[in-house]
Design a protein around this nucleic acid. Structure first.
Lengths: 152, 152
DNA sequence: TTGCCAAATGTTATGTTGTAACTTACAACG
DNA sequence: CGTTGTAAGTTACAACATAACATTTGGCAA
């Protein structure tokens, strides 16, 4: 488990926390952005931009282009409201937008579920190893593929 | 630097080592596969399947479909002759196909270069952390984005 | 109120990455 | 020679991502 305590949010509380964090970073919490965030946090697995576009389209009864979703997801990732899981081309909502971590995703190759753990000592080790090689680390990507506890 | 010694191959020696390792894993070293490997190892940066298809097409004076390249790259990755860099959707040749590591890529966001380091203690730590979370790790993906020494 | 500006979103098009399904070529072997 | 199996070709399409430009909206100053 992580070494420090998080305020884990869910449902309305999560959306509220997201809104607050987002506005604190100087962005507007529009209806569209709220819809995208709702859709994203409604998925139990990492969702692609197209998955989200479809979910928002259904929720709103009108066609929403993936394009618009990408723009908003980029803002979310920048503001730490969402994370991109690189090895599956998909996004997850961040349950604690207030704290910034190099987080580690555990991606089940069987069911597609992704959980995440924060282990700052590990990611610090990765950053240190990079610096030792003369590299300036900015964004570690640490994702582990395998089997989740439900699938093994 | 890594904690153990590698036989680093390059040029003809690399291709020979690849051929040997590939055949040891029960696959045929065909002209097409040799061409793909040559193209791949000719790039200084991670190359997409399409980059390689184009290089092979040029080298052979005929159209080679990306499709075929993907098939061969998959075999290479399985046989540890090549690695996929997940966060950039591209492949690099493996200079020491004989030893199996969870390797760590350092990807420069400025010039696109990717170097790699092997640090078995780090990747072991990642695997251990995953197991602690009830997850069975099979394939860690550890890639660090940032600036290489030439670009900072 | 009107007119203007900037941010957000819509629209359309296109580029890039990745697979699927089926066909053809070719070498090994009886 | 024909059968069999692997490799590679061909075509089509699915999935992921971005570019360029048009439209809408909301704030604000004249």
């Amino acid at each position: 488990m992580a070494q420090h305590h998080h305020h884990e949010h869910e449902g309305i509380a999560l959306a509220d926390a997201a809104k607050t964090a987002f506005e604190k970073s100087g962005e507007q919490w529009t209806d569209m952005r709220a819809s995208v965030f709702d859709a994203l946090s409604g998925f139990v697995k990492p969702a692609s931009a197209y998955d989200i576009a479809e979910a928002v389209s259904n929720a709103q009864g009108r066609r929403v282009a993936a394009n618009s979703v990408y723009r908003i997801l980029d803002l979310f990732v920048t503001a730490n409201l969402a994370r991109r899981v690189e090895s599956v081309n998909a996004y997850v909502a961040n349950a604690h937008p207030d704290c910034l971590h190099d987080c580690i995703f555990l991606v089940c190759d069987n069911c597609g579920q992704a959980t995440h753990i924060d282990d700052d000592s590990l990611s610090a080790g990765v950053r240190t190893a990079a610096r030792k090689a003369g590299f300036s680390p900015e964004r570690p990507v640490i994702e582990v593929h395998g089997r989740c506890s439900d699938c093994e």
